[in-house]
């Protein structure tokens, strides 16, 4: 254990202070999970309404340390879905999102070390990643996501990778735990060791669409179209707007043709919603996505409980929170 965070007491036991603070959640996941959590180091790239929800959740839960990376200077737009930035320019003016969020998050749990990492996520090198057990990326281009995911996979230690994005009332989470073994609780109460093998982001999104089940969430396809379009015109995520609709639909047709998917599988109004969302986040959806991701990271770190494999979708329009396994026939 470094100087950070929740020092487990002698013999790795939780201190009385920790036991008192974490009482209710230890009753959910047990002491061992709590100990593992207090030794885990998490990096979050991209501070927005969704990731701050996640950060809040794991800081409260008592993760070992949390590092925030986002050099963007705070603007008024950032205040919309963010409860970590006080609406006072004399406080946030001229400072990075990571800095301001870090300051507020520290307060949530004095036993967790929260710090800022400066730099550009798209240039993160492999060795830097070794400091972390879990990396979360948000509002990054497909290129950056693939790059970081790939780097995580190249390290000798297992680094869990998550990508999370909220587009107004819709959201997506991608999970890559590489090889994950965990304890599964059976309905009867007995436990069983489980092994999961995850595909990389590249592997997952390369699966031809005609190989996917008919009932695959439409959001999966719509998000790929958008991502692909943004990549081709070199736009940052969320900078595409409704005026791009015709071009995006053309791109969609292209992709559908190539992968023999009936275009009707991707409803145009859904694309329209995603485009008009821009960078907007709907706070209730942020809370839901940040809650699901928080739970996922806790399950993965503690090696306890079923983890999502490997995409999660939420759409406030139908209220469903759905798991997609892509490719569907990958191991387990």
């Amino acid at each position: 254990m470094d100087g950070g965070g929740a020092g487990a007491g002698a013999e790795g036991e939780l201190t009385a202070q920790e036991t008192a603070l974490y009482d209710r959640q230890i009753r959910v996941w047990g002491v061992d999970a709590q100990k593992r959590l207090s030794k885990a180091h998490v990096l979050v790239c991209g501070m927005n309404g969704t990731t701050i929800e996640f950060c809040k959740n794991i800081v409260l839960a008592g993760v070992g340390s949390l590092s925030l990376m986002d050099d963007h200077i705070v603007t008024e737009d950032d205040l919309n879905a963010n409860f970590l930035i006080p609406p006072d320019e004399s406080i946030y003016g001229g400072r990075s999102r990571a800095e301001v969020c870090c300051e507020s998050l520290k307060d949530f749990n004095p036993m967790v070390r929260v710090s800022v990492e400066t730099g550009d996520p798209s240039l993160i090198d492999g060795e830097f990643l070794d400091k972390f057990d879990t990396v979360v990326v948000s509002h990054a281009s497909l290129k950056t996501k693939l790059f970081i995911n790939d780097n995580c996979r190249k390290r000798s230690k297992r680094i869990a990778f998550y990508a999370i994005d909220c587009k107004d009332s819709c959201g997506e989470i991608f999970v890559d735990l590489q090889e994950h073994s965990y304890v599964q609780k059976k309905p009867g109460g007995e436990t069983e060791q489980q092994e999961l093998t995850y595909p990389s982001l590249q592997e997952a999104i390369s699966v031809p669409w005609n190989n996917l089940p008919r009932k695959t969430t439409k959001l999966y396809f719509a998000m790929r179209v958008l991502e692909n379009y943004e990549l081709s015109v070199e736009r940052s995520p969320g900078e595409t707007t409704l005026s791009d609709m015709p071009a995006v639909l053309a791109r969609m047709k292209d992709m559908c043709d190539k992968m023999s998917l009936n275009e009707s599988q991707i409803p145009a109004p859904l694309i329209e919603r995603l485009l008009s969302a821009g960078k907007k986040e709907h706070p209730p959806v942020c809370a839901i996505l940040g809650g699901i991701l928080g739970q996922e990271v806790i399950k993965s770190i503690s090696c306890k409980g079923d983890t999502i494999k490997n995409f999660f979708y939420f759409d406030a329009a139908d209220g469903k929170g759905v798991i997609e396994n892509i490719p569907p026939n990958s191991a387990n």
Binding site: N57, A61, P284, V285, I288, G291, G294
Partner: peptide, 15 residues
């Protein structure tokens, strides 16, 4: 004593 975690509460509040 009930079993309680922040994440579930956050999700439920969103809903």
């Amino acid at each position: 004593i009930v079993h309680a975690v922040a994440t579930t509460n956050a999700i439920i509040a969103g809903l």
